[in-house]
């Protein structure tokens, strides 16, 4: 029987209350949202907080997918199912729906949150790669104010983010661009599993020229879940098979996969390249308004 170690429980009534509770209880306190990352870690004693601060009552404040200015904003307490079913998310970035469709399973998606997933920062986490692909920013609050960090500065390493012990992630902001298409390709061993490898792609077109691009990688040890080398090849190039091949080769070199029960490192490196190719094709088709 797996049961978490003894822990105290508090319930936050607001964002400010959550921050005050984090300050009062110190660094061994942890926020809990959906709990579908943290509770399994607690059962295995990989996490052993003294105090859990339940922020589910903050859903009214922090569960939303909406346009604000030039950004698509996704509140930290948005459940995976809410993002999957959000028309505005799919309208701007199909990659969000591609990824959500293959994150865990429908029942887990009812509970797990966008903020919880990216704050867990598991190296195989899908949304971390998606937001890296899209060049998103994270909005983080503490008692001294709100700060905005780029995804590259948010992901500090495995299970480590820029969110400090007395801080809370409020939302993720994705800049809205026109003439872009995006897609997510994931290989998993069975429905609902972590990725063996997953790749996200963003392609922005001006006629027959790629004006901007993003390539995100999950589960292959890519720094900040991204392949800058592949992105560099894509920018300014023609969206052709030759370009995609070159980007795929760059992406498969731009990561550090480990052999484990999901596959040997060389297979994962091969997948990183092949999924980059597929994601770029699909993102390009979508940027051109073709179904794909």
């Amino acid at each position: 029987m797996q049961t978490p170690a003894p822990v105290e429980y508090e319930r936050a009534a607001s964002v400010d209350d959550a921050i005050a509770l984090l300050e009062r209880h110190g660094p061994e306190a942890r926020l809990i949202a959906g709990g579908h990352s943290l509770l399994p870690m607690m059962k295995l004693r990989l996490a052993r907080p003294d105090v859990l601060i339940d922020i589910n009552d903050l859903a009214e404040e922090l569960a939303y997918v909406r346009i604000d200015g030039d950004d698509l904003c996704i509140g930290a307490m948005t459940r995976h199912r809410e993002l999957l079913e959000s028309p505005v998310a799919g309208e701007h970035y199909r990659i969000l729906h591609d990824a959500e469709r293959v994150i865990a399973d429908p029942v887990v998606r009812n509970r797990g949150t966008v903020g919880g997933s990216i704050c867990q920062a598991d190296p195989s986490e899908d949304l971390s790669a998606v937001f890296a692909t899209l060049g998103a920013r994270a909005v983080i609050r503490s008692s001294s104010g709100t700060r905005v960090v780029a995804m590259d500065d948010f992901h500090l390493g495995a299970y480590t983010t820029a969110v400090g012990p007395a801080e809370i992630l409020l939302e993720v902001r994705v800049p809205i661009r026109t003439g872009c298409g995006s897609a997510y390709e994931k290989v998993e061993r069975r429905a609902g599993d972590w990725a063996v490898v997953a790749v996200g792609a963003l392609v922005c077109l001006d006629g027959d020229r790629i004006t901007d691009a993003g390539v995100g990688l999950a589960a292959v040890g890519a720094e900040h879940f991204r392949s800058p080398a592949a992105e560099e090849i894509l920018r300014g190039a023609e969206p052709s098979e030759a370009t995609f091949d070159a980007a795929a080769v760059a992406a498969s070199a731009d990561c550090d996969p480990q052999s484990d029960q999901r596959g040997p490192a060389d297979y994962k490196r091969h997948l990183a390249g092949e999924l980059t190719r597929r994601a770029l094709r699909r993102a390009t088709a979508r940027a051109r308004g073709q179904e794909g």
């Binding site: 709990g35 579908h36 059962k43 399973d105 509970r111």
Partner: peptide, 23 residues
């Protein structure tokens, strides 16, 4: 016990959840 099998599914506020992964 690991939110994989789903035999513990109950509804919480009208939505199915895995009750092994909710306190």
């Amino acid at each position: 016990d690991t939110s994989n099998c789903g035999t513990c599914v109950v509804w919480m506020d009208d939505e199915p959840v895995k009750s092994c992964t909710v306190l």
